[in-house]
């Protein structure tokens, strides 16, 4: 049993230790994340007077946003593109996660292979598609060599479809892990019991596996949707002018256009869109009866 003196000493040392433990995380999360986001939100309500942080307080940035139909169009386009990418990514990832959870022999290897591109250069993954889709690119030269086309097609690159394809490829591995985690958590006895009671494979999938996997599917959808809705690299490399997304507009405000308050207002809109999507996902999550 420890003496009281040692206990008090230990208590003080524990206090110091806890303070040291809390310091880096608190500094980064409260001091950097919250502060930066708060500052950005404030900047969205400032007037652009050419100075660093603008002047005064105004709703003008948001009024411009609402009045000019171009912005609504670009926001809508970003939503549609990110939505299609999310749908494509989740739907194609689900069978892979299902295979890994229920059937795979070389599970560790396949899982590693699937997540590996995630750690290779994003810029190069996007650029690879430019090589594939370009006028004198791989697809055109390959199809011409095979005699499918006599002339290269310009319809591949610089289209919104190219943006969807490229983003779906770049973010493909993101959705697999959350779905896999959800599938792995399904008690196998549940599946066996259903089979014993005469449920066919389709019924088992529809009534047991899909509802239980839903939280993972929704988590995967959020993880893909967030980076794609704000992307500006892919539209710039393979999208052409008809695929400008909200991220490209924000980038332009902080670059050439030099209107930081308006760029901040656009960023606030992006965050609100993401917040709305997350709330929708939460709602869907609850509707599917998940415990999370």
């Amino acid at each position: 049993m420890a003496e009281t003196g040692t206990t008090a000493q230990n208590g003080r040392a524990d206090g110091v230790f806890r303070a040291a433990l809390a310091l880096p995380g608190t500094a980064v999360t409260l001091g950097l994340i919250l502060f930066a986001l708060g500052l950005l939100a404030l900047l969205a309500f400032r007037v652009n007077d050419g100075s660093l942080f603008g002047a005064g307080l105004t709703l003008g940035n948001f009024r411009t946003l609402a009045a000019e139909p171009l912005y609504g169009l670009v926001i809508l386009r970003s939503l549609v593109i990110a939505g299609l990418v999310t749908l494509a990514t989740v739907v194609t990832a689900f069978p892979v996660a299902y295979y890994l959870s229920f059937h795979a022999r070389a599970r560790g290897l396949i899982l590693f292979l699937v997540t590996l591109p995630f750690w290779t250069s994003y810029l190069l993954r996007v650029f690879a598609w430019k090589i594939v889709l370009a006028y004198n690119g791989v697809l055109n030269s390959g199809l011409m060599a095979l005699g499918v086309w006599s002339e290269p097609s310009t319809a591949l690159l610089n289209t919104p479809a190219a943006v969807v394809l490229t983003l779906a490829h770049a973010y493909a591995p993101f959705a697999i892990l959350p779905i896999l985690v959800a599938l792995d958590a399904i008690p196998r006895s549940l599946v066996e019991a259903a089979a014993d009671l005469g449920a066919g494979p389709l019924t088992i999938f529809r009534r047991i596996i899909l509802p239980n996997a839903m939280p993972g599917v929704l988590a995967g959808a959020v993880v893909v949707f967030v980076p794609t809705v704000g992307d500006y690299v892919t539209p710039a490399l393979v999208g052409g002018p008809a695929s400008t997304m909200i991220g490209s507009l924000i980038q332009a405000q902080f670059g050439k256009a030099q209107d930081w308050p308006f760029g901040a207002a656009l960023a606030v809109v992006v965050m609100l869109v993401i917040l709305a999507v997350i709330l929708l996902v939460r709602l869907a999550d609850r509707r599917f009866g998940s415990r999370t």
Binding site: L32, A36, L37, L39, L40, L43, F53, V226, P227, V229, G230, D231, Y232, G247, I250, Q251, F254, W260, G263, A264, A267, V270, M271, I274
Partner: peptide, 12 residues
């Protein structure tokens, strides 16, 4: 948070 928002928030 999309990267573009992280980038401009920190730039400010």
């Amino acid at each position: 948070i999309p990267g573009v928002v992280v980038g401009i928030a920190l730039l400010v």
